[in-house]
Design a protein around this nucleic acid. Structure first.
Lengths: 260, 260
DNA sequence: GTAGATCCTCACGCCGCGTGAGGATCAAGG
DNA sequence: CCTTGATCCTCACGCGGCGTGAGGATCTAC
């Protein structure tokens, strides 16, 4: 059985040796070669890659920067700088830190939502529920999308940490207004009020007004937004409306909004 | 100029209407159709898609589950269940929460590293430095990869929060042992000691022994691991060795490890 | 000389769409 | 009825960072 290692004198490395030593795959090194990020300093007569010590050092730097979350293109650019240009590298890392911070907040928000949903599933199971639980849950799912689309179009992750500051009275007031609006909408749906009807125009205006609360002002804006953001699921959980009804309302709402 | 909205009776939707109303692009709906996640319930004679209310509800559910971080394949599977199967959906969401938690910890670890590096760059700039700063920084980069490869091959994200518990005396002890080993290695490099030399075998054994500290035991394992994890950069910052020397050491180390 | 390991170069696949290309179809105004 | 502009259709390539073969050449050790 043949052994794997020789590479006698000169300190040069085959691609497999380098890969095993550095903890990457051969395919990865091929890829780096393809995109021009790291090519072997030399080749044998038959075309096999021979990596020099300089290549090894470059590979180590590449992997380190990759562990910091930088995309390969940026790594190439960073290692192409005169190497004594600390300032540009510092800027790059700062931008990366910013990116990761933003991303971490988004992940945090999704985690919160998931936890919220799970706790709701459990509690509804315990209660036994006057309404079939799956229906209620599906309604909740649908309402999540609606609320996301209509109330928080921009960056809502900025205010994900403000949730505890909200008074429950304001939440109750919003609940009431929301509930009244939805019930009125459902009545229109049941009665088959045509979309062109003036009362619908008024209803849509009221609906948008609630939304507009979150587009004006400065601090109230943030507070109101996070209120809706954080309690949207809680609000929908209290709704006594069936998924069928909601589907009708959704369709209705879309049509009404699309009208001039 | 023609208007955009008609869709007269029946409550059916063209693809553009649905897209605008739900906040997705037409291409996205095409994609959902391609992968069989959401196809329009009907088509016109000429082949244009007509979405029914049932389709709309399905789309809302899809988007909601997507906001929770689920991949489209899982969403398709989840919505294919009898829809009154809350248990399986609960399991799915729990798994998702687990995934996101693990991922969030990884992101957190990368952020810590980035902050650490940035502070080091700033401090070295202020000090003026006896060694050229870029060289030192590049050494640090290279050492990050080495430490990652040799000391924490498995899941180190589990213990990212234990950092403050470590006594500084143990850190100092580790620093001393580490420094001694590296210096000895550098001496071998300078003297050109052949890799096959018995002393090198002994040196590699000692090197691996430090690594093995982190693969045995139970609590010591976690503590020692996080110690190396969190202080690896700090250790390398104190090293008075040049990048050139390190490159040689790295190459040397790789060869010695690859030897039988 | 031969076996088995390692090397080479294509080239497609993943995921969730973006971004055209090139052509058919729709609704409304003249 | 015809035009006009918006909207619709179906391909099909692109992204990032490789994984995973296919099919063949080359290495090393016995």
């Amino acid at each position: 059985m043949p052994m794997k290692q020789t590479s006698g004198a000169g300190g040069r490395w085959s691609i497999g040796e380098l890969a095993k030593a550095c903890g990457v795959t051969v395919r990865t090194l091929h890829h780096y070669d393809e995109i021009g990020l790291l090519s072997a300093g030399q080749r044998t007569a038959s075309g096999h890659r021979r990596y020099t010590e300089e290549d090894v050092r470059r590979l180590y730097r590449i992997r380190a920067l990759q562990m910091l979350g930088l995309p390969l293109a940026d790594i190439g650019a960073a290692l192409a700088t005169p190497a004594d240009d600390m300032a540009s590298l510092r800027i790059l890392l700062e931008q990366q830190l910013l990116h990761m911070s933003r991303y971490a907040e988004q992940v945090q928000a999704v985690q919160d939502r998931l936890r919220d949903l799970l706790s709701r599933i459990d509690s509804s199971r315990i209660e036994g529920a006057a309404m079939p639980a799956p229906e209620q849950f599906m309604s909740t799912l649908e309402m999540i999308t609606v609320l996301e689309n209509h109330f928080t179009p921009e960056q809502r992750q900025e205010l994900a940490d403000r949730r505890a500051e909200l008074g429950s009275d304001r939440i109750e007031a919003a609940k009431a207004r929301w509930a009244a609006l939805v019930e009125e909408g459902l009545r229109h749906v049941e009665n088959g009020t045509p979309v062109s009807d003036p009362s619908i125009r008024e209803w849509v205006r009221a609906w948008d007004e609630i939304g507009s609360m979150f587009h004006s002002g400065e601090q109230t804006k943030a507070a109101a937004r996070s209120m809706w953001q954080d309690n949207s699921a809680a609000l929908s959980a209290d709704m006594p409306w069936s998924s069928e009804q909601l589907a009708g309302l959704l369709a209705y709402l879309q049509k009404a909004r699309a009208q001039p």
